[in-house]
Design a protein around this nucleic acid. Structure first.
Lengths: 126, 126
DNA sequence: CTACAAGTTAGAGTGAACTCTAAGTCAAGC
DNA sequence: GCTTGACTTAGAGTTCACTCTAACTTGTAG
């Protein structure tokens, strides 16, 4: 079981942010009798997953939605299909971002090539 | 020469945002005698470049820095090397984002595969 | 000439995601 | 027992990038 500072160090995320995520309904650490947060491996793995989703610009609202579906799932009401849909939607998003980045990377590379030649005849357009 | 609404349509950007970019020192349209903005092809091309940089999360501050260097460049003081450095820095950034996205895309694809199997033996961990 | 669409401005407001503050509690080592 | 440092909270503040408002002026079609 980890304290917040250990989790903070392990994920390179400030304790502030980790508490913020909890307040936003993304994390559920257990507490000691005196109210101190304790995180197990499952929570650590989950936080790492969340950070990955955040790094690829999935809004906190949507991540919370995913968590709520997970917690709401039961024998009588299976939410796995809805969670699958959420993941697929984000996958689509990630792929769009990828396409955008690839195009921009090419554009920058071309521009850099122009600068590197520094051929006086090359007309700079910003 | 285009009006702001034409530029807005051509770049799928609101006129509000285009004016905002001008206030932030990214755009320099000419003006009619009565003060109405007019954009030429160069400005259109440049705006498209800016939007590309923004779509890949280059901060407005850095884009402005690039513009300032461009405008400051002269026979006596060539800023092309500094501009090259800025572009290289952003290229590095774009590549980091790319790596992040590729990793996350793989992770989501794996997770989706798990959901799609819906094998009861598969232990879900969020 | 008039209507009205489209332009202008300064500056206020918004939303997302943190980020920090202040005031306090608690656990461990000396 | 005392100090130190890590933890707790509610809530305020910050940053970024827009986004909008209100009051006004200008361009154009009928």
């Amino acid at each position: 079981m980890y304290t917040i500072s250990e989790i903070s160090r392990l994920t390179e995320t400030t304790a502030h942010t980790i508490r913020y995520y909890e307040k936003e309904g993304l994390l559920f650490p257990t507490r000691t009798t005196s109210g101190v947060r304790r995180y197990d491996e499952t929570q650590l793995t989950w936080l790492r997953f969340v950070l990955r989703l955040r790094a690829t610009h999935m809004p906190i609202d949507q991540i919370r939605e995913y968590v709520k579906l997970f917690l709401a799932s039961s024998e009588t009401h299976d939410t796995s299909l809805e969670r699958l849909r959420l993941l697929e939607a984000h996958q689509e998003n990630v792929r769009r971002q990828l396409a955008e980045l690839v195009r921009t990377e090419q554009m920058i590379t071309e521009k850099i090539a122009v600068y590197q030649q520094l051929h006086p005849a090359v007309k700079e357009t910003f």
